[in-house]
Computed example of a mutant assay.
Amino acid sequence: MRELVYYVAVSLDGYIAGPEGQFDAFSLEGDHMADLERLADALPTDAAAHLGITQPGTRFGAVLMGWNTYAAGLPDGITSPYRHLEQFVFSRSRHSGTDDDGPENLVVTDRDPVDVVRELKREPGADIWLCGGGNLAAQLVDEIDRLIVKRHPKLFGSGIPAFASSAYRPSSFEMVDNRTFETGVAVTEYARRR
């Protein structure tokens, strides 16, 4: 069965973006960048092509994101950031009452994210990547099978937390992999304890 994997970059104080939604404080230079190929399916399609990285579609087959995460690329004309994956954008206000087939393999929906994830998990294919943001992660916390946290040695002070405040119950995960780099970035993978 497919797993839901929350793979996300975070600051030391647990934020996935700064106070105004900016994510450009995360370092894009250094030895941790060599780890990108391991999870190449989680790179935007155009960025992978620019870097000469092949996206095999073997780790992730679908990506989920909230509207604000998706909208980050719109000012630059990026309307389909992950064309190599099935893309699901969740929004309560930007829809026509039914799922909208967007550009290049993208659906904007107001459906319950839990229902969508449970349907996707029953389908054959590679895992499902939860790209962001914090509100969507909080809604899906009980469906998350793995967390891959790329922790950067930065403090944001405030911003968008990895999990928005919510009434979810404590969950236990066990560490299954940990990679540290000279840049101070650490990539740690956790699997849910069942």
Rank of each mutant, 00 (worst) to 15 (best):
S93F: 05
P103K: 10
V63P: 00
T54I: 07
D99H: 03
T58P: 02
D46K: 15
E37C: 02
E119F: 00
F60V: 03
I78E: 12
E37A: 15
G61E: 05
N105K: 12
E37K: 13
H95F: 08
S91T: 13
I53K: 04
G97D: 09
T79V: 09
H84M: 01
D112K: 11
T98P: 00
S80I: 00
E123K: 12
H95P: 03
P56R: 13
H95N: 14
G77P: 11
S96Y: 06
L120W: 11
D112G: 12
L85K: 01
S93W: 02
W67L: 15
L85H: 02
N68H: 15
F88W: 15
D112W: 08
R38Q: 14
L36N: 13
A71G: 04
A62D: 01
T69P: 08
L36W: 14
N105P: 05
L64Y: 00
G52P: 14
Q55P: 02
E123S: 11
L130A: 09
I128T: 07
Y70E: 10
Q55W: 01
D41K: 01
I128L: 06
P113H: 09
R118D: 14
D115I: 12
G102Q: 05
I78V: 15
Q55I: 02
T69K: 08
A71T: 05
S96L: 14
E104A: 14
D115S: 15
T98I: 13
T79H: 11
D41A: 05
T109H: 04
P44R: 08
Y70M: 10
I128Q: 02
D76T: 04
A126P: 13
R59A: 11
V63D: 00
A126M: 06
D41Q: 07
P113L: 10
R38V: 14
P75H: 03
G66L: 11
D99F: 04
Q55Y: 01
M65R: 04
E123L: 12
F90K: 11
D127R: 04
R59G: 00
T45F: 09
E86G: 00
D100F: 06
L39G: 09
G61M: 05
Y70K: 07
D115R: 15
P113Y: 07
D76S: 14
V107Q: 06
K121G: 05
G66K: 09
F90L: 12
G66N: 10
E104P: 00
R118V: 08
S80L: 00
S91M: 02
I128F: 03
P81G: 07
Y82A: 04
L43E: 04
E123N: 07
V114P: 07
A47R: 05
A40S: 15
L51G: 06
G97W: 09
I78R: 14
G66S: 10
G61A: 10
A40G: 12
L64P: 01
V114H: 03
V116E: 04
D127Q: 07
G102D: 03
N105M: 07
F88N: 01
S91G: 03
P44A: 06
L130H: 08
E104K: 07
L64R: 00
T79R: 09
T98Y: 06
W67F: 15
L36R: 09
A49V: 13
A126C: 08
P44N: 06
A40W: 08
D112M: 11
L43F: 07
L74R: 07
L51I: 03
D101I: 13
D115N: 14
W129E: 00
G57T: 03
W129H: 04
G61H: 06
R94S: 04
T54M: 06
T109S: 12
R38P: 02
A72C: 01
K121F: 04
